[in-house]
């Protein structure tokens, strides 16, 4: 049947669905977890999902630009992780807490 054909022979769609799933899981981590470090890790997960999407398109459209983009995303993700962790370390030093529940100082 055509549907099982679509299911078993992997195409661009599958990669994109995978990317969507990983992205969603990452965003749930951002939204639901209390620990600041885990939130940062979930952000990394989201960026990974985006990378999958880029590479999938690059492969299937025979375009190298997607892979270049992945390079950039990774670099930036690493940089962001470094800065974010530096900030987290600072916060931990000052407040002895990494629970974001305690950091609602910007309340209006």
């Amino acid at each position: 049947m055509q549907s099982t054909e679509a299911l078993v022979s992997v195409g661009l769609n599958h990669y994109l669905v995978l990317s969507a799933l990983l992205f969603t899981i990452g965003s749930l981590g951002v939204l639901l977890r209390k620990n600041m470090i885990v939130i940062l890790m979930s952000i990394e997960l989201m960026l990974n999902a985006v990378n999958i999407s880029f590479v999938a398109f690059a492969t299937y459209l025979d375009n190298l630009d997607g892979k270049i983009m992945v390079l950039f995303v990774m670099t930036i993700a690493a940089a962001e992780a470094a800065v974010g962790l530096a900030l987290a370390v600072n916060i931990f030093k000052n407040f002895r807490e990494v629970n974001i529940r305690f950091f609602e100082h910007l309340r209006g």
Partner: peptide
């Protein structure tokens, strides 16, 4: 309306989502 600005980052993220 002010209750929207709770300082809770995850709420902000939810709204963006």
């Amino acid at each position: 309306v002010r209750s929207m600005q709770s300082g809770n980052i995850q709420q902000y993220a939810l709204l963006i989502l």
